[in-house]
Design a protein around this nucleic acid. Sequence first.
RNA 1: GCGCCCGUAGCUCAGCGGAUCAGAGCAUCGGACUUCGGAUCCGAGGGUCGCAGGUUCGAAUCCUGCCGGGCGCGCCA
Length: 552
Amino acid sequence: MKRRIEEVLERTLAAARREGKLGSSTNEPVSVEVPKDREHGDIASNLALTMARSERKSPRAIAEILREHLDDPEGWITSSEVAGPGFLNLRLSPGFWRSELARLSAEPALGVVSEEAGKRAQVEFVSANPTGPLTVGHGRNAVLGDTVARLLSTAGYAVEREYYFNNAGRQMKVLGASVRARYLEEIGRPSEFPEDGYQGDYIRDIARSLRHEHGESLADHEGNAFRAAAESAIFAEIRRTQERLGIVFDHYFNEDSLYASGAIERVVAALDERGLVDRREGAVWLVGEKVGLEKDRVLVKGTGEPAYRLPDIAYHEDKLARGFDLIVDVLGADHISQHRDVAAALVALGHDISTIRAVIYQFVTLTRHGEQVKMSTRRAEYVTLDELLDEVGVDAARFFFLCRKSDSHLEFDLDLARKRSTDNPVFYVQYAHARISNLFAEAGRQGVAVPEGPANASLLEPLGESEEFELIGQIALYAETVALAARELEPHRIVFYLQELAASLHRYYNRHRILGDEAPERVTARLVLLHVVQRTIAAGLGILGVSAPDRM
RNA sequence: GCGCCCGUAGCUCAGCGGAUCAGAGCAUCGGACUUCGGAUCCGAGGGUCGCAGGUUCGAAUCCUGCCGGGCGCGCCA
């Protein structure tokens, strides 16, 4: 929609220049905006303001010249005015809006262009080690990552979802020891629970099932057997939770493979060759000063084991080597500095890291009855993601996780998410979809056909209400909203867009009766409009991974 | 102390590649149904955009400093 008006202005600018009313030296980018305030027209341009300096004329004077030269052979613009400091405010004609709707009705993708077609993207997310059930925090990560992946697909990328994990480190040893202690308790043997062991009930559950399976025969086994059992049980849970959310990974990447392939040693050797490491106090350090970091960082601990960041560097080298056009890391705010270390090391090793982008999210707090739900990972007092899904459902969970900019803290209101009423934004949007389905069902009962294919502009002639043009304007913005959200990796933009579209629909629905109009052509035209609106809502919800129900 | 993020209406948050800009939802108050589901809609009140400087013709938006909150600053992951 914007593009079509921008073309009008580009021609206008050229015409004014030909006539010598404006200088021809510069090549101004023409852009238009949809004003928030209806008073400012359907569409507006600040072109005169941006040109003021090079033209050495007042913005208002330039705007006036543009206004007089408007090159609009199709009659899209019904009125124009110069406003404020020099904006050109335009009102668009019914014919323009009808042609927009006709265009959209014929577009399966609603105007979304696969700008990045042919490119490959990878999104790495969740990446929790299998030491316990996924928490609410993981939930934000999971839903963000999956939705970013969906957005990138929409933009044309071939997307791979990857989960990176380590089932070999110290944490896993502690896990094994924790399960072993609980197992011994179960069979009535003396046991000592590890100081920093995992307290959660799920450890007892695993221990109990081990007893059911093996009786007391494991009593003399070391932690390893318990660790392996715990890992597979916990991983199965993690996958099940993800599946509930509609998330399926293409690859699970085990950190172990980086040891097996020698990749980790090669990273140390390469850094060493470049003189970027220091050996002291029994450890191998990455020298901060030489790679642009504030402090030195340990790569290999005194025990000979790599610190977390070393395999992470090797992992990112591996990702880079796989030739993706875009690599997205979804991580919590507590991992930012870690990520910076990795980036610094990669640059120092001569890699181009411009394809790597991070989506960083702040923490989630839960509120119930207006009070914050206290959580402590240490004492295993936290709400698991599964419990959250049990309580509010998948649709509400996904929608709520996405309804804030990832950079903002997210206050998740459990009471609101569970409500089946208008206050709940998920239901508000879903209801708009269901409402249209319901209307179509009613039309069917009345023997009125719902036109689903492309509609030509003449069929849409009966559309004339301002709410109808407002709705068309909304759906015409869908494509660019999706494009922007994909480019910026910002799913929340879709959430806000859908809330506004739903509001426009409800407003329209409330003010105008669709069926029962004495003019059948008007009924048909309105059904065409509603059908495209419904497709748009369904497509937007689809990107969020939220269902678009026909009845609620 | 240093780094990153945040600070916008009573609450939760958009807007922040400068410009007709002070916005949405919730909450509060007041309205609209012989209805295609009122699970909706309409209206009202409410904010020196944390504070102070600076850049600019123009700043919620860019820069600097300060204040307040979160997260890091591990030979944990």
